[in-house]
Amino acid sequence: MAAVSSGGWRRWFYLYLPLGAIVILTLFPFYYMAVTAVRPDREMYIPWNRPNFAPFWTLRPTLEHFALLFRETLFARWLVNTLFIALMSTGISLFCGLLAAYALARLRFPLGGALGTGIFVTYLVPQTLLFLPLGEVIRSFRLGDTPWALILTYPTFLIPFCTWLMMGYFRTIPRELEECAQIDGATRLQAMVRIVFPVAMPGILSAGIFAFTLSWNEFIYALVFLSSATQKTIPVGVVSELVRGDTFFWGPLMAGALLGSVPVAFIYSFFVEQYVSAMTGAVKG
């Protein structure tokens, strides 16, 4: 957008300052998490209005909270579980969502609109309602306490999401693209896979990113369907291990939050770039 004319103080005033402020506000909780994660326990008992309350730094940083996380809990295992579950459920959802979205966006068939709305409506069904009846389904498939309990249930809220996001993107792709291919002799399916999907890559990536995040975050199903410590995911594992009775272990909690997000953030930083540039490219090309 061209709200800012190039150069000079205006750029500072309209762009750098507000953007800087927002970035600082957004990232501050992370900074605070990081400081808390290396702050010795004793310092966390200093009230905010004491003169020696040092919020932004600590003079005696410690790694004890991280050590505790790996030594006393199964954090590394939870990380792997969470990754596996999130990747699998994202994969399944993308597959289902992509095909469904193409059908809904491009093909003409009776009740198409109704089906589209129907798929979407499943996204509205509250989890707090579903988790009890779902428990029965999980039991009858004998999936309790296995990652598959989550891998197969997460798509329930991921598929509608992926489908609708993808439908949006398919609609922005000019039909002429595949129609040209069809005129050149490709079948509909070929046109879809070879022409439309690559063009829709940014959409697929963004749907994937967000589906991944949603499964990464999920709490209720993970709490209810898993029981072994070795099976748990990060949110459930960390919370139930580090909130003991009336004591919160803030240091390890924050260390866990940090470690649970930084690796993913790193992967994202790569994908986000792809996502934005791929989209730009798609339009220009």
Binding site: V23, T26, L27, P29, F30, Y32, M33, T36, M44, I46, P47, W48, T213, W216, N217, F219, I234, P235, V238, V239, F248, W250, L253, M254, G256, A257, G260, S261, V264, A265, Y268, S269, V272, E273, V276
Partner: peptide, 27 residues
């Protein structure tokens, strides 16, 4: 771009706990 996404990535439960700590009336 990458850093802006951070809040969205941390598991909600954990980032919310961080906020709870930041809002704690005593600390």
């Amino acid at each position: 771009r990458a850093s802006m996404l951070l809040p969205w990535i941390v598991p909600t439960v954990l980032s919310t706990l961080a906020w709870k700590w930041m809002f704690d009336p005593t600390f």
